[in-house]
Design a protein around this nucleic acid. Structure first.
Length: 450
RNA sequence: GCUGAGGUAGCCUAGCCCGGCAAGGCGCCAGUCUUGAAAACUGGUGGGGUUUCCCCACGGGAGUUCGAAUCUCCCCCUCAGCGCCA
């Protein structure tokens, strides 16, 4: 949420900033919000005056109590007030709600360094690393490859849970865990505290961290409960300090969230037919930081460096883009995407999103800055960045590291987490097909010591 | 799920039974004093508004009343015990 005081004090500045997002709806929202605010203020004055009169009268009635009781005139006026107040207050409340609803729909103010542009085609490449592997005739998609390896089940998953779900199995599961552990170790070495957050949040904190459209398009709601499955651990990590006053001396707070994430993925490009690039659930190690306002630009670069480091060490070529004004999300003031090179697709595709949300989330969540016993009006900044979303990272690894014989080399840096395993190998061709696992009868375990 | 206890300002607490300006302590800020600090003393320390003043705020909402932290009803959350449970 944008600071209302700033909107009142420097409306032109806010308007100019919102205009950079190239969505006229925002300017209209701003105009409506300002109008609603002005109306609310005048309604508030009327209500305040009525309440003031009510207070005067009831004090006088209290005084008159010991002295023969209040006069009939006094009583009559006092009794006339509640009805007037009721309608006035209802109007005032309505205006305030309208104003606040409008304010909440306004996106964050953009940082000046965000390039001006209409959509993702105008994002600006700010860094590239590695040499993109050339495409080849035999290159297989990561989904096909997984099936051939016998380590991914898509049709069965679709039957059981619907499209957008998958079964992973065998060494690939270990590779997934290895990647998470590798990223986590990297973050811990850089001062992050690992956090395993709740996978469900109530609506109230959720409204603090995301925009309303997400409730429709992204989040799964638990039926009959005020709970939503998290779309990213960013959300519960932000809510961790909801309603608190953060001691400035303890900042920045660096957290490494580890969680499964759940997304409906309605709209957009939908889920892929086969594979794990865009799915309804995926694992992610996330960087999240609470900091003082002046620290956030520097920390954004820090988070970006960490995310790049993951892909460098795994040796996957990538580039970094500074996301342009028309493409930055609602809550971010500035965002970098890391895009990895997918050799079969011959394209860079997003694997990391790294955002500075400035005070937008923190204000909505009621988080303030302060020192012991001295809360301040100022609000901390929050930042978040993927360290590694394993589904996407594994997809790119499969494309990048596949070999003509259908096996996949395991990146050097992950091998220590896999007991030295160097490759994912397809089922050996010479060996006889073991067929479905035989049901073995085991003797019922004897129950001793009972 | 059941039963009980709770939710008051940055924190802790009183007020609730029996309606009449939210009291006190801690912390914090400022001032006096001091070479400096501590202590002591004095004042301040939630949000809003058209700011010498006024309004709001006691988990949220509705109701009763001239007047509600206080009475009534509904809801939310936390804690404890019990139940269920990997």
């Amino acid at each position: 949420m944008i600071d209302l005081e700033l909107i009142r004090r420097e409306p032109e500045k806010v308007e100019a900033n919102l205009a950079r997002r190239r969505n006229p709806d925002y300017l209209r929202l701003l105009t409506e919000a300002r109008a609603a605010d002005a109306q609310w203020r005048s309604a508030l004055r009327v209500a305040d005056n009525l309440r003031r009169r009510r207070n005067e009268l009831s004090h006088r009635m209290a005084e008159a109590r010991g002295q023969g009781g209040p006069s009939p005139e006094l009583t009559a006026e006092a009794k006339s007030i509640p009805d007037q107040l009721k309608t006035t207050e209802a109007g005032e409340r309505e205006l305030r709600k309208t104003r606040d609803a409008l304010l909440r729909r306004l996106p964050n103010l953009l940082d000046d360094s965000v390039p001006y542009g209409k959509d993702d085609s105008e994002n600006v490449v700010v860094a590239t690393w590695g040499t993109p592997r050339p495409g080849g005739v035999g290159l297989r998609s990561h989904g096909e490859l997984l099936e051939a390896l016998g380590m991914g089940e898509f049709e069965r998953a679709h039957r059981a849970s619907g499209s957008g779900f998958y079964y992973l199995s065998g060494p690939f599961v270990l590779l997934d865990l290895a990647l998470q552990r590798f990223a986590l170790d990297l973050l811990v070495s850089r001062g992050f505290t690992p956090v395993a957050p709740p996978y469900m949040l109530r609506r109230e904190p959720y409204e603090g961290v995301t925009d309303l459209a997400d409730f429709e398009n992204v989040m799964y709601k638990v039926e009959g409960e005020d709970l939503y499955l998290i779309a990213t651990s960013e959300h519960p990590l932000a809510a961790l300090h909801m309603g608190e006053i953060l001691d400035e001396d303890t900042l920045p707070i660096r957290l490494a969230g580890v969680s499964m994430n759940f997304r409906k993925e309605i709209g957009g490009h939908g889920v892929d037919q086969k594979g794990i690039f865009r799915t309804h659930q995926f694992s992610k190690v996330e960087q999240f930081v609470f900091c003082r306002p002046e620290q956030s630009p520097e920390i954004l670069e820090e988070l970006r460096t960490n995310a790049e480091e993951v892909f460098r060490r795994v040796e996957v070529p990538y580039r970094v883009v500074n996301v342009c004004t028309g493409d930055v999300g609602t809550v971010a003031a500035k965002k970098y995407d890391v895009e990895a090179w997918f050799p079969r697709q011959q394209a860079y595709r997003e694997v990391v999103s790294c955002s500075n949300c400035t005070d937008y989330q923190a204000r909505r969540l009621g988080i303030r800055l302060g020192k012991a016993g001295r809360p301040e009006k100022s609000v901390p900044h929050t930042l978040n960045s993927t360290a590694v979303a394993t589904s996407r990272a594994l997809a790119v690894i499969l494309e990048q590291y596949q070999r003509p014989d259908g096996s996949v080399t395991i990146p050097e840096v992950l091998r220590p987490y896999l007991g030295g395993m160097a490759a994912l190998n397809p089922p050996s061709q010479g060996a006889p097909d073991p067929g479905p696992a035989r049901t073995r009868r085991r003797p019922a375990p004897s129950r001793q010591g009972k």
